[in-house]
Every structure is written in C-alpha cells, then in structure tokens.
Design a protein around this nucleic acid. Structure first.
Length: 562
RNA sequence: CGGGGCGUAGCUCAGCCUGGUAGAGCGCCGCGUUUGGGACGCGGAGGUCGCCGGUUCAAGUCCGGCCGCCCCGACCA
C-alpha cells in the first residue's frame, strides 16, 4: 500500500506553458514525469510504476515466445558502427574517452548483439535464438517533442532473432507478430498493425504497431481488412471527370499559370484532369520525369522504392536543358524517361507544353508520350481498397518488427556452419517496443476533462482509497483499514490519507486516473459501505462496496473494468 | 536545417512600448476557523528578472552577443 501523504506526487493545477500534446500536459500535471532538458525527462515514482507495468507485460510475452532477456551497454565502441556504416547517421551521439578512443551511444543494439552472436554462435545447432533487453537508447533527434512521445533518451525493448535461413526468419517474425498482438491487447490500448517502409534498416519486410491518437506523428490509412502507413499505402484513386478527348493535343495560352491552381482557374478543368510533372535525378538512371494527377501528391518514399534507388529533385538547369521551362514542363517532347502514376486513367489530360505560358490539352499517355507505370502517389482519404473508402488517422508508433536478413550479420561476420560444414550467414530480424510511448498513448486515448483514465493493465496502482476529513477521523481510520484489507487481498492500493479537503482529494484522484476510487465518508461509514466510482466515464457504482466484505466485492467489480 | 514564439517566485503570468524601491493568482510555512468537489481569515517565507557585455546618474525594461526551451515545417534506425 502506498500512502499519498508520503508519496512524491507533485500534481499541478495548471499545465506547463510550453506543453501542447494532451499526454504531455497530463503527465506533468499528474506528477508522472518532469523535464530536465529538450527531450530529456525523468520519471517520477508514479510515472515509473506505469512504465514498469508496460515493461512487465512485454517481458512476459517475450519470454513466452522463448526470448532470452539480457543487457548490453549503452556506450559502445565506434568501430562496430563503422563496420555497418551506421556511424555516419546524424542522430548518433558520439564521444571519446580520455585516451581518445571513439565511442558511440547506442540508438539501437544491432551492432552489439550481432557481435556477440558472431563470437558465440558456431553451429546450426546453436540456432534459432531470440535475444532481447530493455535498455536506454540515445538519439540526437532534430526535434524532440510532446513530452514522452519523442525524446532523445528513452528505454526500448529491442529483441533480435537469429535464424539459419529465411524460413526460420519467417517463423521468428511470426512469433514476434503474435507476441506483439498479445502485448498490445493486454495494455488495453486501441492499436493496429500496419505495413511500413523498411527505411534505412534495410531488409525485406516490416510492420509497425500504431496507436491512434491526436498527438500521433504518423498517418495511417485504414479500410476494412486494410491498414498501412501512409508512407507506403496503396489504394484505388477516386475517379475524376476528364474533358472530352481530342484527336491530337491542342496548345493553349496560359500566361503566368505555373501552378495547378492557376491552370485549373484558367482552363476551367478539375485539378485531377491535369498531369503534374516532378523531375528527379537518380544515380543509376539520370533524369526522369514523374507524372501524377494534378490533385495528387508524389509520395517520395514510394517513389524511391519504385525506383529502387535514392533520388533528388532535378536542378533548374537540368530541367531547362532536357525538358522545358520550369512551370510549364510536360511529357510531350521531354528528353528523358517518363514514369506515370498508376492512378492516371486513360484519357486526355492537361500538361505543360514545354513552352513558356503555354499548356497542352487532350494529351493522352501512350499516344502522345511513352511511359513506365509505377505507384508513386500518396493515398488520400476517400480512395478505395477492395471497394471500401479509406480513412486516414494520426497515430503514434508504439512498436515495429523488421526482417533484417544479413544486413548486420555480413559486416559483423555472424556466421555458422551448416550440416555440410559449410559457412552460412545468420539471418536476422529486429523488433522494438517503446514502453514510454505505450504509457503516453494510453493517456492520449482515454483521458477526459478531469484527467487521465488508465486502462487497468497500465495504472500505477489498481485503485485509490480516500478517507474524508482531516486528522484522525473515524472515516480516515476506516479508509486505512479498507486499504489494508484490499492490499492483503492482492490489490495494489493508493491511500489518500492527506489532511486535505474532499474537493482536492477528488480532483487529484481524477487527475491521476486510477481505474477505481473508493471513498469512505460519514454517511457511508454509518451504512457500512464505501462509495465506489469507476474512473472511465466517472460512473458511480450503486450501493458502493460493503466494508466488511470489500475484497470480494472489489474483485467482482475489478473484473468488469476496462 | 528553415520559419515563428518564449525565458521574471515551485506553477501560470503581469511589469518592458514610455528606464527610477520586483508584482498578482495559485502553491508553500505558522496560527485559527472550516470539512463531501480544489474553503476562509491573519501572519510569513520565497527572486543572481536565462547568461555575458554595452548605453545610462540609474537597466527586468534600451542595444549587442550568447545560451536554453517550445511550436510549425524538413528530418526521424
């Protein structure tokens, strides 16, 4: 049992002036976290309890799939990161020791864990392995924000799978996916798993676990049976009414109309009847002209994936020389390959004429210019997947799973001998979860006007007992006994034994947000019962709970709570 | 990295334009009254006004530099 009179729980009536996100405001107001610098936060006792609740759920489910918990250092020799090439990442903190030896602060632990596996694993008999730890990650984020949602230092559960082949990796990946399903279900969050970009981790497949909330930094496209990060989402575009076709492109005078909006206004056609030209340059293919519908946006991640290599936007002189005057460029007559987005249906479009102050109308892909097809646009709310319109929601990334392949085993020499005595590279996966984000997302999803409303799996204590009155009143004595009884019955109890007024106690209880609140007052004491209020929705339990058999009554009530 | 904003008591802020004894509310400490939704009275503690420099008889206030923090965007294994 924890007595509030002895607990460091600095609640604030007003949110910090610089807080924007709901979870940021409430975590500070409720006394869960305090800031020391940009992206640097301390967890106060109550906050740390919630963090550890999330950690324990994760630990249990990782152990259940055969994960072996260990611990690796935060400070690592830079040499390992040079081998994988990741020492050039901007977010990596670097330092030197007194001898001038180069060190880095781990932003993840692929290098460290793979080094151990390279040293220790010799035979196919040593595989498969799942290793994990909860350890601090350090990232020099360009912009930390929103309290605990994006910090420069945070604890992550990162696990790594080591298999002898792709089949083994698929099995380890699937184990993690199922463990993650159970973990996020147990937290009480609203969440979903989405397809994601593999990013600079490389590898062959990835999913992200997303918790929808207003403060989320990611956008997720959703339809029945479909969920994907907008970075990689594909959908069928909403149709657009095209003007009647023309036998051949027709030149029109459009003075000063260098943007889609200008052309729409000048020619009285819908934006979707335009083709927007996006000239890019890649190392392998040189200049390329990417075309998407005028009402669509190029998705740079999808474009990079479609090209199979990084690109940059073309410089003005490159555009002038090979295509036309910026503002009026189009595919007809362009001296470079053309990539046409899949959402561009057959028909006649308005494009730049590659001539100042002119456009062409009635331009038909194929008839008037050659092209390659690719899906390179950003999906929009209302597009269709399997006939259902999609919605787009902001969400916070709470976990991810990656198939890494040999991205790390190769540079770090993690190999084993197979049955034939032949040396093979270990096939890896990596899997992260941020407990702090789970906590913050739970606050974002369930908080109301009065404050936090914890799902019971994450609540710092199970329930709060309040004794009305100041000094040694009979109500407070009864409350203390009730709290002790419930603690003995296996509940983790917070007792508000402070000499404060009832209003202050209620307000603090609602701010802190434990799932259940029991109040012992004069009236209830005479009737032999404590009042019970469920935090979610602030619902009063009829007749409260009897003081002489509180444990059974609370147990019954507890099982009904969210 | 681009744009914007802020830094004065534990918290939220006023004071700066127009230089002249550092303020309010909440919180905190003491005493008393009060006791079912952040009560009231009286008394009190608490400040290198982010830092450095300049102008001035005099700087929280004007000028310059620096540092820190927040927001939007870019970025984000």
């Amino acid at each position: 049992m924890t007595r509030l009179s002895e607990l460091l729980l600095p609640t604030e009536r007003q949110p910090p002036a610089d807080a924007e996100a709901l979870s940021h405001k409430l975590m500070v107001r409720a006394g869960l976290i305090r800031q020391l610098g940009a992206g640097l936060w301390s967890w106060l006792p109550a906050g740390w309890k919630t963090h550890e609740k999330a950690v324990q759920i994760i630990r249990e489910e990782m152990n259940a799939i055969g994960g072996q918990e260990m611990l690796m250092p935060v400070m690592l020799p830079r040499e390992l990161w040079k081998r994988t090439g990741r020492d050039q990442i901007d977010e990596l903190f670097t330092l030197e020791d007194r001898k001038g030896s180069e060190l880095v602060l781990a932003m993840t632990h692929e290098e460290a864990v793979t080094t151990h596996v390279a040293q220790v694993v010799r035979s196919y008999r040593d595989l498969p392995l799942i290793l994990y730890h909860f350890q601090t990650k350090e990232r020099d984020e360009p912009r930390p924000r929103a309290g605990a949602l994006r910090t420069r230092e945070f604890i992550m559960k990162d696990s790594y799978s080591f298999d002898r082949d792709e089949e083994g990796l698929a099995a380890s990946y699937e184990k993690h996916a199922r463990a993650y399903d159970r973990i996020f279900d147990r937290t009480g969050l609203r969440w979903y798993s989405v397809e994601s970009d593999v990013g600079m981790m490389g590898g062959s497949g990835a999913h992200e676990y997303m918790a929808p909330c207003a403060a989320g930094e990611n956008e997720v496209a959703l339809a029945p049976g479909y969920a994907a990060n907008v970075e990689v989402a594909s959908a069928e575009a909403q149709p657009v009414d095209l003007p009647a076709p023309l036998p051949t492109p027709e030149r029109v005078h459009t003075p000063g109309a260098t943007t889609v909006e200008d052309v729409v206004r000048s020619l009285h056609v819908p934006a979707g009847a335009l083709l927007k030209a996006f000239p890019v340059v890649t190392e392998g293919r040189g200049l390329l002209l990417v075309l998407v519908r005028g009402d669509h946006r190029v998705n740079e991640i999808k474009l990079q994936n479609a090209l199979g290599e990084p690109f940059r936007t073309a410089h003005e002189d490159e555009i002038r020389e090979r295509i036309g005057p910026p503002g009026y460029i189009g595919p007809v007559g362009a001296n470079c390959p053309i990539i046409l987005d899949e959402a561009v249906a057959d028909g006649g479009y308005v494009t730049g004429a590659n001539d100042p102050d002119h456009h062409l109308r009635g331009v038909e892909p194929g008839r008037d210019f050659p092209f390659e097809r690719a899906d390179v646009r950003t999906v929009e709310a209302g597009d269709f997947v399997n006939g259902h319109p999609i919605t787009i929601e902001p969400a916070i990334e709470i976990g991810n799973i990656f198939q890494l392949g040999t991205r790390y085993s190769e540079p770090l020499g993690a190999t084993f001998l197979d049955e034939n005595g032949k040396e093979q590279l270990v096939i890896m996966g990596s899997y992260g979860i941020g407990p702090a984000r789970i906590v913050a997302a739970a606050i974002e999803q369930y908080a109301d006007e009065q404050g936090i409303s914890w799902p019971r799996a994450l609540s710092p204590w199970d329930l709060e007992v309040i004794g009305i009155g100041k000094g040694d009143t009979p109500e407070k004595q009864a409350a203390a006994k009730l709290a002790a009884d419930l603690q003995d019955a296996g509940f983790d109890v917070l007792l508000d034994d402070r000499d404060a007024g009832p209003g202050e106690k209620f307000a603090d209880a609602e701010l802190l947000g434990l799932p259940l609140r029991l109040t012992v007052g004069k009236r209830g004491l005479e009737a032999g019962s404590a009042e019970a209020k469920i935090r979610r929705g602030l619902v009063d339990v009829e007749d409260g709970v009897p003081l002489d058999s509180a444990a059974e009554a609370v147990r019954e009530l507890w099982d009904t709570l969210p």
